[in-house]
Design a binder for these strands. Sequence first.
RNA 1: GCCGCUAUCGUCUAGGGGACUAGGACGCCGGAUUCUCAGUCCGGAAACCGGGGUUCGAAUCCCCGUAGCGGUACCA
Length: 455
Amino acid sequence: MSEDSPIRLRFAPSPTGALHIGGARTALYNWLAARHGGGELVLRIEDTDLERSTPENVEQILDALRWLELDWDEGPVSQASRAERHAVALQQLLHSGAAYRDSATAKDVEAWKAKHGADRGYRGEPVDEPGAAVRLRVPDDGETVVDDLIRGPVSFPNRSYDDFVIARGDGSVLYNFAVAVDDAEMGITEVVRGDDHLSNTPKQLLVLAALGHAPPRYAHLPLLHGPDGKKLSKRHGAASVQELREAGYLPAAVRNYLALLGWGTDDDTTLMSTEELVRRFRVADVGKSAAIFDEKKLRWVNGRFMRELPLDDYAKAVARHLEREADAALRAACAIAQEKAQTLAEVWALIRFLFEPPVDDEKAWRKVMTEGALPALEAAGAALQEAAGFDPEAVEIALSPLPERLGVKPGKVYQPIRVAITGTSVSPGIFESLAALGREKSLSRIDSAVVRLRS
RNA sequence: GCCGCUAUCGUCUAGGGGACUAGGACGCCGGAUUCUCAGUCCGGAAACCGGGGUUCGAAUCCCCGUAGCGGUACCA
């Protein structure tokens, strides 16, 4: 392994829909490996599958990568756009005899296997039909070894592989062929991708060998599973990057959490800046077993990142998520809520009362507005009316003598106030909340509550 | 069926023959912070898939089994 020559990696998603969390992690690992090693990252879109590869799907993936703040040095290169290069390589194999045309259908292959045994790959007969599919000749003996950076050498018996199709009858080329050609011609030195490609790698190695190309180094990442141990999918909640964004997670937190899924530091560090991730990440240190995506831990990581954000950045992130202006009012609101939310989506419930009338939470009202509530609110209103100022300290000075004076526990005073000004029983600190609301609105909301209690 | 990968607390992991009475983190449970919720702090329960080897000694190495996952398309 030469550390001296610059490495070149690629992230090569197929645009069949939104970018999945698994795909996002693969992108992240490629990005971290490239940045760590001072190498280059190429973005290649595997769009040789005609129907499913729509421009919308491609845009969705680019969008997700941009949101994650994972940049690339080259591309996006459309694999389909390299069709001419693929055709040249295909001709080369046809001429050398490494590949041949075969008219066998899937059914024929099945029948062949029924006859020859399931442990033996299909071997066809060359035909002289221009419209027949092209298969690569696979040796009957020996084995093909994938020297995996994560798993070590993994060998596959050649005879268990079919002479697989590398080009359709119409001349369009198939995945395992296109990938091998592209990786070689684009000068990729490390292929970091999902485990689901491990069994396909020998085919790519065979193509590379037939073409006379040296193979890149491979690293196959363990797959990501949902909480039920099955492959991650829509039914597991937030399964795509888009959903993560909508759920109010911070890109930096997502990067941190995703990095930890399958990779850990030997000193148990959990929270890391992206710079630290880049500095410490090594593909060879990635674990071998599948990991389960646990949104609870992501929430915790996200909460930590949110609390550490400078107020300005915090307000901007909240504003973007709420699609509002990051104005002074929002900043002030964020200031009292920052310690309490784990996701951007949770912030609004905490600060809503500053922008809209109290919410209608009947349950909270019934629970809090009991006998002692009326006198408490009347006393609070009077005290706030006379308060020397209306910053949190002044509000506290005005209110703190009330519990003792009324002979009740503090909660009996503060909770009714909370419900009166916010409509519900959960909010930021009561003094901060009152101060942020302002004297006028605070008094009028307390008044309204008093009126309602009297009726 | 065939080929392959994987297997430490519920989850993410540390561990690469003796330092392991198996460590950390999330989550969970309990306590504290006497304004809610959250946060923070303290404490607790919780794991080496099973069976054989190798070795003075195995979570660590080997084999078998079991389970999970992946591949096996003229999909990517």
